[in-house]
């Protein structure tokens, strides 16, 4: 039985928003990269769209993070050692927040490059950049979950599944969003179908993680923290968000006509998932 006597860090809306966008930007970029690497020639257009979206979404992240700090002007303390007598850069691989700060910075560079390439309309783009950027994207979409687990808060620290869970939902959300925007240009119309299949798989993985999360929490004896009212409602929203992609997987064609709605449901689900986890542990 896990018993906690810690106080909450009071991470609220800024952090929620950050986690949400981090999931999307990372997911976007990763999907873009995978389309480019493994997809068809026709997919390149959508891949480019992904890169065009990934960067602007990313930009809001450091802003959110910084205004959440008690001392925003000291955001750089995350990267530069300011302890008197020390100096140089600071990197604590064992602290996800330290690792994440660096990841965000480096990923930002790649996202920016790919953004320029895509914006410059040059077809294709450096595969190396895409690959590394893609991996970093996956990290950025995911580490926020690990960050929560690496603490002593109830729920967060009672499970190790949050990293995987956030990544899965990030990918799913990104896929849905991309699918929605892909429909707009004719070129993407045909990529969209396969995006929604991918989304289906991502949702499936997410579902597995959710079950694993509940299992680990149950084992720790803190499942009630996550499921108690009012939070149970948010979990419903999460589940609803899973339906469209899973349905798509089941080949339900009707889903196609309501792709936009589907995307909204999925994205709301992504948001709800992070909300329920961030808030239920602190309230």
């Amino acid at each position: 039985m896990a018993e906690h006597f810690v106080r909450p860090p009071e991470w609220t809306w800024y952090i929620l928003a950050y986690f949400f966008f981090a999931g999307l930007t990372g997911g976007m970029y990763a999907i873009g990269a995978m389309l480019r690497l493994w997809g068809r020639p026709g997919d390149e257009a959508v891949a480019r769209t992904a890169f065009l979206w990934a960067f602007p979404i990313l930009v809001v992240c450091p802003i959110l993070l910084t205004i959440d700090l008690g001392r925003p002007l000291r955001f750089f303390h995350m990267l530069v050692a300011t302890t008197p007598g020390q100096g140089g850069l600071i990197f604590h691989y064992w602290s996800p927040m330290s690792a994440g700060s660096w990841a965000l910075l480096v990923y930002g560079i790649f996202a920016f490059v790919s953004f320029l390439e895509a914006a410059g309309g040059r077809p294709g783009g450096s595969r190396l950049v895409t690959t590394i950027g893609g991996l970093l994207g996956l990290f950025v979409a995911s580490y926020t979950g690990v960050l929560l687990s690496v603490s002593n808060q109830p729920l967060w620290s009672d499970t190790w599944t949050l990293g995987g869970l956030f990544l899965a939902s990030g990918l799913s959300g990104a896929a849905a969003l991309l699918a929605a925007v892909a429909r707009k240009d004719a070129a993407g119309a045909e990529t969209e179908a396969r995006l929604r299949v991918a989304d289906g798989y991502f949702a499936l993985i997410e579902l597995i993680w959710i079950l694993l999360l509940f299992a680990t929490l149950a084992a720790a004896g803190t499942l009630s923290v996550a499921l108690r009212a009012p939070w149970i409602v948010l979990w419903l929203v999460v589940v609803i968000g899973l339906i469209p992609p899973l349905a798509a997987l089941g080949g339900r064609e009707r889903a196609r006509r309501s792709a936009a709605l589907a995307a909204v449901l999925v994205l709301v689900g992504v948001l709800a998932l992070r909300a329920v986890i961030i808030f239920s542990a602190q309230g």
Binding site: V6, R7, P9, L69, R71, F75
Partner: peptide, 19 residues
């Protein structure tokens, strides 16, 4: 040096630190 990220608060198992 502290920039008020509050990660330590979530970590202290004794609920010692306050912002």
């Amino acid at each position: 040096v502290c920039n008020g990220c509050r990660y330590c608060i979530s970590a202290c198992p004794f609920g010692v630190i306050g912002f």
